[in-house]
Design a protein around this nucleic acid. Structure first.
Lengths: 216, 216
DNA sequence: GAATGACGTTACCACTTGGTAACATCATTC
DNA sequence: GAATGATGTTACCAAGTGGTAACGTCATTC
């Protein structure tokens, strides 16, 4: 039987992008390619070349509409106080990190995007993606700067890296050390650890400031 | 001109494994394949099938001899005190994390191995590698358990994840946030951040213990 | 010194990949 | 209702992949 396909550029582009996400999420970054996407979308691959100009264009279009980080950060900024007090500071940053973790955990195709990026860092597109993220993070940190004496950029980059890597691991390994990443209990342990880390930083910083004051 | 190759199984196996490392480090996980390795080693690919039984066998052989983590951890255990005091505890773990970071940073092919693992998590070999690492880490933590009230497994896994991801990023992006990963200065900032995190945990934990004591 | 088996080579296979040209077909516009 | 351009299809290409059979060629052993 021959299926007659309605001619509709918008719709086929949509289908292609959707298939792109599915392929990335399911098969992983390795088997993702123009042919796979075309097949999955049940669309002739020639159309991908026509509409997106090839793999890079496709990836870019996909990213622009799909990547959640900028939206996520903006949303967090809206609800967050601009200059947190010493008490709320560690709370705020724990919340941010944990929410980021939870959100990232649900976005399978975003995870695959990061995976792709990690193995294609030399490409121009990967670079742009990375610097895009960087700007978004820098913006966030500048607005609600935590631990300003404690190099917030370094700390944040470490914590975000930790969470990112952990989430990527979770889709491959059931456990890391004795932490079960396929149960909520495991993730709660990580959340607690994150809270403790930020809380510890807060305490240490306060203590240092007190020392400075008493010396003066 | 025809180069006559001496017949020597040991040596060609050696050459193949060496080429494996080079290919992984140079071209990255993407373009690594049997053909690439064979070409690089200037060895007929048939020999790879004969000696290693294909890609998986090759990878496994490569891993067994090459992966540094277990050796690294064992070495660290030798020089470290078994039950660190409260004062030396944060110092010890900072040192461990930082040394791990420095070591991992110099091992390009180990980095590519991890990259490979991150995109082939479903394979049996990747699973084995992961659980091998897990055991090594668990062993280490059990011996020099830090912050035993603070879920050391969760904290360690976060910190190691952070460092791992950071190093992987560094070979692709010049900067993360405003941290220049191609200069020592950037890495020193990260080291300082790591020290502060562990120190903060230490202080927080001490304070909690004091509270318990005074309550009793 | 013939036989044997380990080592290395040549040549090929089927299959997948990214990419393109040429074609058919529909929808709008004048 | 003819022209035209956007849409979808067929068929092909070169290049690369993993994998194998069949063939040489050397070294040892008896």
């Amino acid at each position: 039987m021959k299926v007659v396909k309605r001619r509709n550029r918008q719709l086929t582009m949509e289908r292609i992008l959707r298939a792109m996400g599915e392929v990335m999420a399911e098969r992983g970054t390795e088997k993702a390619g123009i042919n796979a996407v075309a097949e999955r979308a049940d669309v002739n691959k020639v159309l991908i070349y026509r509409y997106f100009g090839g793999w890079n264009g496709l990836l870019e279009a996909y990213v622009q509409r799909g990547f959640f980080l900028s939206i996520f950060n903006e949303k967090f900024l809206e609800t967050a106080p601009e200059a947190p007090s010493s008490e709320t500071r560690s709370r705020l940053w724990s919340d941010y990190t944990i929410q980021f973790m939870q959100e990232f955990r649900t976005r399978k195709s975003s995870q695959e995007l990061i995976r792709w990026e990690m193995t294609h860092g030399e490409t121009e597109l990967a670079q742009r993606l990375a610097s895009f993220r960087n700007e978004s993070f820098k913006n966030l940190i500048n607005k609600i700067a935590p631990f300003s004496d404690y190099d917030p950029m370094a700390i944040t980059s470490l914590m975000v890296s930790a969470v990112t890597h952990m989430v990527l691991l979770s889709s491959q390994n059931e456990k890391i050390l004795d932490i079960d990443l396929h149960t909520d209990e495991g993730w709660v342990r990580l959340e607690t650890a994150i809270r403790r880390i930020y809380a510890g930083l807060n305490i240490a910083l306060e203590r240092e400031n007190n020392k400075k004051v008493s010396e003066a």
